[in-house]
Amino acid sequence: MKAIGYTATQFGLPIDDAGALTEFTLPDPVPRGRDLLVEVRAVSVNPVDTKVRRGTRPEAGETKVLGWDAVGIVRAAGPETSVFKPGDRVWYAGSITRPGTNSQLHLVDERIVGHAPASLDDAAAAALPLTGLTAWELLFDRLRIERGAGAGQSILVVGAGGGVGSILVQLARQLTQLTVIGTASRPQTADWVRDLGAHHVIDHGRPLSAELSRLGIPQVDYVASLTQTDRHIAEIVESLRPQGRLGLIDDPAPFDVRMLKRKALSLHWELMFTRAIYETPDMIAQHLILEELAALLDKGTLRSTLSEHYGTISAANLRRAHTLIESGTARGKIVLEGWEGGA
């Protein structure tokens, strides 16, 4: 099968080097246990792809295949599977401890797989699994916001125009009664966030507390910090109500958590891969979340966050996608679809 990745000798190359990501021919994987063998039709690119490429050196002789979003067709199933069968169209975000989805065939545990939304084509669906799972878990599992609740309360989404922010804003607006405030620093991104349902958009290039005061909302009950948490932490603490909750997903430089003590603020980490890494007893929760997200998309409650379609799944197009993500100016999600010469 075709796969795209890098070896130890390619590790550390800048993304504008043609050798940073290249095409390989690898053996077709064989499903065992609870694994599904999926023929990959479309993928999207996330910041984690660029972080792993820059930070993980493969062992000698190993090919590191990236990619943690896919839509495809089940071609075979392991002997312990019970949810899916060959021919099912599925979507998922995979596990960071296993080979990625930038390959024609891919193995994934069925407990973290859902039936793809019928109303979306492969590209539109591929934009959503990783970010949808992350946003759902952050809102409902980590911050413990109740669905249908939140009247009179508010949430600030820092970095609302990115992949996770683009779906989190929709979930918060559609499934809770919270006042949703997103941050964006460019006019086109601010328009995108408003269009996704944010009640207000403020500029995270300015002090957050001053921007909130300008809206007449001096403090918020929840903050979902999706990027540059270390840069904004003092303003986040200032902006949270006493006993408020801070959830984050990025990898900030160390900051002094004692800043949270005076207000008795709680800190909540979200990592979408945790359930798969540790095969937690509730690992199948991700299957259930993906099923519910698909239903919400098919009802029109949510919409795809696809913003850029970069063509076929190729090394050159993946390098382009990584370049845009590393620039810090990506809006929504970048998707690639199909393989040159077919699957």
Rank of each mutant, 00 (worst) to 15 (best):
163 G>N: 00
134 T>S: 13
248 L>K: 12
158 V>L: 09
245 R>Q: 15
146 E>W: 09
227 T>W: 11
305 T>S: 12
45 V>H: 03
232 H>Y: 05
214 R>C: 08
121 D>M: 06
57 R>G: 04
152 G>E: 02
312 T>S: 10
36 L>C: 00
265 L>K: 09
201 V>Y: 04
276 A>E: 00
94 G>F: 06
118 A>D: 13
19 G>Y: 01
9 T>A: 15
143 L>V: 04
269 W>L: 14
218 P>E: 15
133 L>P: 03
181 I>C: 12
159 G>H: 04
246 L>N: 03
285 A>M: 13
263 K>G: 07
24 F>A: 09
21 L>H: 06
169 V>M: 00
255 F>G: 01
246 L>R: 05
341 G>A: 07
191 D>H: 11
147 R>E: 05
169 V>P: 02
16 D>L: 11
129 P>Y: 03
50 T>G: 11
6 Y>A: 08
176 T>G: 07
213 S>E: 15
282 D>V: 13
139 L>M: 14
236 I>F: 01
314 S>P: 05
102 N>H: 13
12 G>D: 05
130 L>V: 05
221 D>N: 01
61 G>I: 07
75 R>E: 11
340 E>C: 06
220 V>F: 12
20 A>R: 01
153 Q>V: 08
132 G>V: 04
190 A>P: 05
93 A>Y: 01
208 L>N: 03
120 L>G: 01
225 S>H: 05
230 D>I: 08
243 Q>Y: 15
46 N>Q: 10
79 P>L: 15
300 G>Q: 11
211 E>N: 05
231 R>K: 14
176 T>C: 08
112 I>E: 03
220 V>I: 09
79 P>D: 08
118 A>W: 12
117 P>F: 03
258 R>W: 12
158 V>W: 04
281 P>E: 03
128 L>G: 08
308 E>Q: 11
